[in-house]
Simulated scan of single mutants.
Amino acid sequence: MPKSVSFDRAQVIDQVTKLFWRKGFHATSMQDLVDATGLNRSSIYNTFGDKYQLFEASIRHYQNGQSETVLQSFYKSLSPLESIHDFFLSILASIKEDKERRGCFLSNCTTELGKSDVNIQGLLIANKDAMVGLFEQKLVAAQNAGEIALDKNVRLSALYLFTSLQGLQVTAILMSDQRDLDALVERILENL
């Protein structure tokens, strides 16, 4: 009779996400995964597959958490531009809370594997497309509310916001002055 699994799958995914986020895919060993989860190798392989499959699960786990952050900001009863501002402020707050200065897990994945792994690249592109789509919806709503000019190219502006978000999260790894981060967010939004 097979041994029953006696651990919380979601908790394990959360633990390995934090590990991959801190170390990256290539620098994380199977032993690191064993140590982080407290599971033996066979339990990891039997339940989750190999390191790569765990990494994919970690990306999806992180994306789900990020989606909740976006939705919390975008579906408050704020004006369209205020909701974009609120979203950037929530990202800024999480950057400031991160004492390890890990940056964004997805941005880190992009720089580590975005060019070399087609499957991971697909996950990252899907995330980009979803974020750009949400920004675009908010910008169209901002146009309709008279918050931005009707002749503004919302697709390009949405790509600008996504690019700014990625750049902010990567640059924050290297910045220690919180006032500069605050000023960057304000500058990003002023350029809309």
Rank of each mutant, 00 (worst) to 15 (best):
P2W: 10
V5W: 15
S6H: 10
S6R: 14
F7K: 13
D8K: 08
R9K: 14
A10G: 06
A10K: 12
Q11L: 14
V12Y: 04
Q15M: 14
Q15A: 15
V16I: 12
V16Q: 02
T17V: 05
T17P: 10
K18L: 11
G24L: 07
F25D: 01
H26A: 11
S29H: 12
S29Y: 10
M30R: 08
M30C: 09
Q31G: 01
Q31W: 04
D32S: 03
D32G: 03
L33C: 06
T37E: 10
G38K: 03
L39P: 00
N40V: 12
R41W: 08
S42V: 13
S42P: 00
S42Y: 10
Y45M: 03
Y45G: 01
G49C: 11
Y52P: 14
Y52M: 10
Q53I: 03
F55H: 15
A57Y: 05
S58M: 03
I59R: 07
I59L: 15
R60C: 04
Y62C: 02
Q63G: 12
T69R: 14
T69K: 13
V70M: 11
V70T: 02
F74M: 01
Y75N: 12
Y75Q: 11
L81C: 07
E82K: 05
S83F: 07
S83Q: 07
H85S: 15
H85R: 15
H85K: 14
H85A: 13
H85W: 11
D86E: 15
F88V: 03
L89W: 06
L92R: 05
A93P: 00
I95E: 03
K96E: 11
E97Q: 09
D98V: 01
K99D: 13
K99P: 03
R101T: 04
G103C: 09
G103Q: 07
L106R: 00
L106E: 02
S107C: 04
S107A: 04
E112V: 06
E112L: 09
L113Q: 07
G114R: 06
S116L: 08
V118M: 03
I120P: 01
Q121D: 10
G122M: 02
L124Y: 09
I125V: 07
A126K: 09
D129I: 08
M131K: 13
G133F: 02
L134W: 04
F135W: 01
Q137P: 04
K138L: 01
L139G: 02
G146R: 06
I148P: 06
D151V: 00
K152Y: 09
V154A: 05
V154F: 00
R155W: 00
R155K: 02
Y160S: 10
L161K: 04
L161T: 04
F162T: 08
L165E: 10
Q166G: 14
Q166V: 08
G167P: 06
G167Y: 02
V170C: 10
A172C: 13
S176Q: 12
S176G: 12
D177G: 03
R179N: 14
R179H: 05
L181F: 02
D182A: 09
R187K: 15
I188T: 11
I188Y: 13
I188H: 13
L192C: 09
L192M: 15
